[in-house]
């Protein structure tokens, strides 16, 4: 089902950060560029506080680190959100909810995964009920490593994401569309009978256009 091609997950960081987007930029019209700039300037965050990472979101949003100056502000429901922050290890039980929330977000949408646990399982690497690589189940745009990463690191991650959005990079949601079968197969493998219904993702298969 799954064949490893090239890099995977966190290994791709160098590649994605170093990718030459000059070609993409040339294809953009003025409106596209304006839209891309607006999108990066206003990011509504759905912070999914799955693990210890949730504790890092508070200082990030409040006076000490003040993410609002970058236009980053919390959203209450997935419908309003642009960025899903998965802050820490994902138990299999939580994975279902995270996938549901992600699919309910409106495109364009981005995922930031926080901490070592989302990259390779971290200290839960041999746990029976924790997923190791979040990248297998959801298209992560950006990993912020550390255990836990400090708010400064998170801000750096956000700024990197903003730069990529401004450059016109499409983001993981397109990858999710194109490889939906692969993602769904991976999800089904860990969720089994507990798999979530496809009412939020079926429209992607019938070829919804962005």
């Amino acid at each position: 089902m799954y064949h490893k091609t090239g890099c995977e997950g966190f290994q791709c960081e160098d590649q994605t950060l170093g990718a030459d987007l000059a070609g993409v930029r040339d294809e953009q019209t003025v409106v596209d560029r304006l839209v891309a700039w607006l999108r990066q300037r206003s990011l509504f965050v759905l912070a999914y506080g799955t693990g210890c990472g949730a504790i890092e979101i508070r200082p990030l949003m409040t006076s000490r680190y003040d993410a609002e100056r970058f236009g980053i502000i919390g959203a209450a429901t997935p419908r309003q959100a642009d960025v899903l922050v998965i802050s820490g290890y994902l138990a299999i039980k939580t994975l279902k909810r995270v996938i549901r929330s992600y699919e309910q977000m409106q495109e364009p949408k981005y995922v930031i995964a926080l901490g070592s646990c989302t990259i390779n399982g971290g200290m839960y690497w041999d746990s029976y009920n924790t997923v190791k690589q979040v990248d297998h189940y959801l298209p992560v745009d950006l990993f912020v490593n550390g255990c836990m990463p400090r708010p400064e690191a998170l801000i750096e991650g956000f700024v990197a994401l903003q730069k990529r959005i401004a450059d016109g990079e499409k983001g993981g949601w397109l990858r999710y569309r194109e490889n939906l079968d692969w993602y769904k197969a991976n999800q089904r493998r860990v969720l089994g009978a507990n798999m979530l219904p496809d009412d939020t993702s079926a429209w992607l298969q019938v070829g919804g256009q962005a």
């Binding site: 607006l38 300037r41 206003s42 003040d66 609002e68 100056r69 236009g71």
Partner: peptide, 15 residues
């Protein structure tokens, strides 16, 4: 804290 630029609501809305 420093807060967002005064145009932030316009950006949010247009976004």
């Amino acid at each position: 804290r420093r807060g967002p630029p005064i145009w932030q609501n316009l950006y949010d809305n247009l976004k």
